[in-house]
Amino acid sequence: MSWIIGPLLFIATVAGMEGFAYGAHRWLMHGPGWFLHKSHHRPRTGHWELNDLYFVIFAAPSITLLLGGVQWGWGDWTIWVGAGIAAYGAIYLGFHDVIVHKRFNHRYLPKSAYMKRIIQAHRLHHVVETKGGTVSFGFLVAPSPEALKAELKRRGHAGVRAATQQATPVSP
């Protein structure tokens, strides 16, 4: 394989994974796979949730392609595609689990307009606790928060989590 084709295939795979992730999130996770994904739209009670099984499920094609290319002679293209899927998984883990959901303690504060936009879009996705009525299914590409808020309003805020009551400090 040409020295330029492999890296281009890798980049195309990483980019294409955003489209795949959007479709899987919208029509699989918020469809027949809701029985696993609903744990992700509820307050987490421990370090793990059933939704974490999707990470294993979506890693399987990457592992298979990498093994196919390295061990089973399927061709170099499978290594580049498998690596692209794995790279997207790493980006997803860093953005989704570390930055947005803070599954690991950190002090990162988004400064760029892009990071603020995708974090807010993902949080707006999570205000809906139900299978339907959710907005913003992508991870690295998202509509503006204003558009998402308008869509939630248009839908009558169906499935939106009720605001939690915070204790009012009592004066001595």
Rank of each mutant, 00 (worst) to 15 (best):
residue 14 V to K: 11
residue 14 V to D: 12
residue 15 A to R: 15
residue 16 G to P: 12
residue 17 M to N: 14
residue 17 M to V: 02
residue 17 M to W: 13
residue 18 E to V: 08
residue 18 E to G: 10
residue 19 G to F: 14
residue 19 G to T: 13
residue 19 G to P: 09
residue 20 F to C: 05
residue 20 F to L: 11
residue 20 F to Y: 08
residue 21 A to G: 11
residue 21 A to D: 11
residue 21 A to W: 07
residue 21 A to Q: 10
residue 21 A to F: 09
residue 21 A to I: 01
residue 22 Y to H: 11
residue 22 Y to W: 15
residue 22 Y to E: 04
residue 22 Y to M: 10
residue 22 Y to K: 10
residue 23 G to Q: 01
residue 23 G to W: 05
residue 24 A to I: 07
residue 24 A to P: 03
residue 24 A to Y: 06
residue 25 H to T: 04
residue 26 R to D: 06
residue 27 W to A: 00
residue 27 W to P: 03
residue 27 W to S: 02
residue 29 M to C: 02
residue 29 M to R: 03
residue 29 M to N: 01
residue 30 H to E: 08
residue 30 H to Y: 00
residue 31 G to Q: 07
residue 31 G to R: 03
residue 31 G to Y: 09
residue 32 P to T: 05
residue 32 P to Q: 07
residue 32 P to D: 10
residue 33 G to S: 07
residue 33 G to K: 00
residue 34 W to C: 11
residue 34 W to Y: 12
residue 34 W to Q: 09
residue 34 W to S: 10
residue 34 W to A: 09
residue 34 W to G: 15
residue 34 W to V: 12
residue 35 F to E: 05
residue 35 F to N: 00
residue 35 F to V: 06
residue 35 F to Y: 01
residue 36 L to W: 02
residue 36 L to T: 00
residue 36 L to N: 00
residue 36 L to E: 00
residue 37 H to W: 01
residue 37 H to F: 01
residue 38 K to L: 14
residue 38 K to Q: 15
residue 39 S to N: 04
residue 39 S to Y: 04
residue 39 S to P: 13
residue 39 S to K: 07
residue 40 H to M: 09
residue 40 H to C: 08
residue 40 H to F: 08
residue 40 H to V: 06
residue 41 H to F: 09
residue 41 H to Y: 06
residue 41 H to P: 05
residue 41 H to T: 05
residue 42 R to V: 11
residue 42 R to G: 02
residue 42 R to N: 10
residue 42 R to M: 02
residue 42 R to K: 10
residue 43 P to G: 00
residue 43 P to A: 05
residue 44 R to V: 06
residue 44 R to K: 01
residue 45 T to P: 03
residue 45 T to E: 13
residue 45 T to C: 04
residue 45 T to S: 04
residue 46 G to V: 00
residue 46 G to P: 00
residue 46 G to C: 01
residue 46 G to A: 11
residue 46 G to I: 00
residue 47 H to R: 08
residue 48 W to N: 07
residue 49 E to S: 08
residue 49 E to F: 01
residue 49 E to A: 09
residue 50 L to E: 05
residue 51 N to S: 02
residue 51 N to D: 07
residue 51 N to T: 00
residue 51 N to W: 00
residue 52 D to V: 15
residue 52 D to E: 14
residue 52 D to G: 15
residue 53 L to Y: 04
residue 53 L to N: 06
residue 54 Y to M: 00
residue 54 Y to W: 10
residue 54 Y to V: 08
residue 54 Y to I: 07
residue 54 Y to D: 12
residue 54 Y to Q: 06
residue 54 Y to F: 12
residue 54 Y to G: 09
residue 56 V to N: 10
residue 56 V to W: 05
residue 57 I to C: 12
residue 57 I to A: 14
residue 57 I to F: 13
residue 57 I to R: 11
residue 58 F to C: 07
residue 58 F to Q: 13
residue 58 F to G: 07
residue 59 A to D: 13
residue 59 A to F: 07
residue 60 A to T: 15
residue 60 A to N: 13
residue 61 P to K: 14
residue 62 S to V: 04
residue 62 S to W: 02
residue 62 S to Q: 13
